[in-house]
C-alpha cells in the first residue's frame, strides 16, 4: 500500500470501529441520537473503502479480488453496500449496525495481518466471467452474513429485542425477524448460485474444465446445498425458529470457510495471489 492508500485503509478501519462503539454506547446508554452518528461513520467507511478499491483497481489494472487481502476488502465493501441498501429500504435495521460493523472490523483486522502487496492478473485469468464470479461471491456472502446477523438478533430473545425497541423505534420487530432471515437466505442462494455458475464458465476458459471438484468449488457447493436444506427445512417442516437461526449461523461459517479458509488448509488452484 502506498501512503494515500494506507490513510484510506486505516481511516476506514477506524470508522468501522467507531460505528461499533457508537452503536454499543447508544444501546447501553439509550442515546438514540448516536445511531445517526453511527450511520454516518459507516457511510464514511463505505466511501473510504470505495476510494481505496478504485485506487487499487487503477494501480493494478484489475478489480481488487486477486489476493486474499483484496478479496477481504471487496467482501467488506459488499457487506457495507448490502447494509446501506437494506437500511435505505427499511429504517428498522439500525440494529444491524452492530453485527455489520463488528464483521467489517474483524475482517479489516484480519486483512491487516496479510500482505497488502498487489499482484497483476495473469493473462490466463483475465476474463469478464471472473469479475462476475468474484462479485457475486462476495455479494452472496454479504447476504448470508446479514441473514446470520438477523439470526443472532432473534437468538437474543424477545425480551431483549423489546427492550431495545424501547430505546429506538428503528429496531425491527421480533416477529419480523424470521421472514427477514428467510428472504436474505433466498437472496443469498440466488447470488451464490450465480457465483457457482459464472465460476464454472470462467474455469472452462481458464483451466479447460467446467467443474473439477476443486476444494473451493466443493465447499461453495456444500454451502449452497446446506442453505437449500435450511430453507426447505423451514418452509416444508416448519423447523423450530431457534434451530433455523442456529443452522443459518452454522451455514454462514461454511461460506466464510469457502471464501477465506480453504486456502489455509488445501492446495487449490483457486489460491489467491
Amino acid at each position: 500500500m502506498n501512503g494515500g492508500e494506507s490513510i484510506l485503509y486505516w481511516t476506514a478501519a477506524l470508522c468501522t470501529a467507531v460505528t461499533f462503539f457508537l452503536t454499543i454506547v447508544s444501546l447501553v446508554f439509550k442515546k438514540t441520537t448516536l445511531f445517526t452518528s453511527a450511520r454516518a461513520t459507516i457511510v464514511a467507511a463505505f466511501v473510504l473503502i470505495t476510494i481505496f478499491g478504485i485506487s487499487r483497481w487503477i494501480e493494478w489494472g484489475h478489480p481488487p479480488f486477486v489476493t486474499l487481502f483484496e478479496s477481504m476488502i471487496t467482501s467488506i465493501w459488499f457487506l457495507l453496500l448490502m447494509y446501506l441498501m437494506v437500511s435505505y429500504f427499511s429504517r428498522k435495521t439500525v440494529i444491524l449496525l452492530l453485527p455489520v460493523s463488528l464483521a467489517a472490523m474483524l475482517l479489516m483486522g484480519w486483512s491487516a495481518s496479510l500482505s497488502s502487496e498487489g499482484s497483476p492478473l495473469s493473462e490466463a485469468l483475465t476474463n469478464t466471467w471472473l469479475f462476475i464470479h468474484a462479485s457475486f461471491a462476495t455479494a452472496g456472502a454479504s447476504a448470508f452474513l446479514i441473514a446470520a446477523s438477523f439470526s443472532v438478533l432473534f437468538l437474543m430473545g424477545k425480551d431483549r429485542m423489546e427492550r431495545m425497541q424501547t430505546i429506538s423505534a428503528q429496531v425491527p420487530d421480533y416477529s419480523d425477524l424470521p421472514r427477514s432471515i428467510l428472504n436474505f437466505l433466498l437472496f443469498g442462494l440466488v447470488l451464490w448460485g450465480v457465483m457457482i455458475v459464472s465460476g464454472s464458465i470462467w474455469a472452462h476458459t481458464a483451466w479447460g474444465r467446467y467443474w473439477a471438484w476443486d476444494p473451493i468449488e466443493l465447499w461453495s457447493l456444500i454451502s449452497w446445498l446446506l442453505y437449500g436444506v435450511v430453507v426447505h427445512a423451514r418452509l416444508a417442516f416448519k423447523l423450530p425458529l431457534r434451530v433455523f437461526c442456529w443452522l443459518t449461523i452454522a451455514a454462514a461459517l461454511t461460506v466464510a470457510f469457502s471464501l477465506w479458509g480453504v486456502g489455509y488448509l488445501y492446495k487449490t488452484i483457486h489460491s489467491y495471489g
Binding site: A212, P215, L218, L221, I222, L226, Y266, I269
Partner: peptide
Amino acid sequence: LVLMVLSAIIPQQGLADSQ
C-alpha cells in the same frame, strides 16, 4: 452432503491433489 464432505477430506483419484 456427507459424500461431498468426505471427498473434501479424502484425496480423490483423478482430481486435483489438493486434500
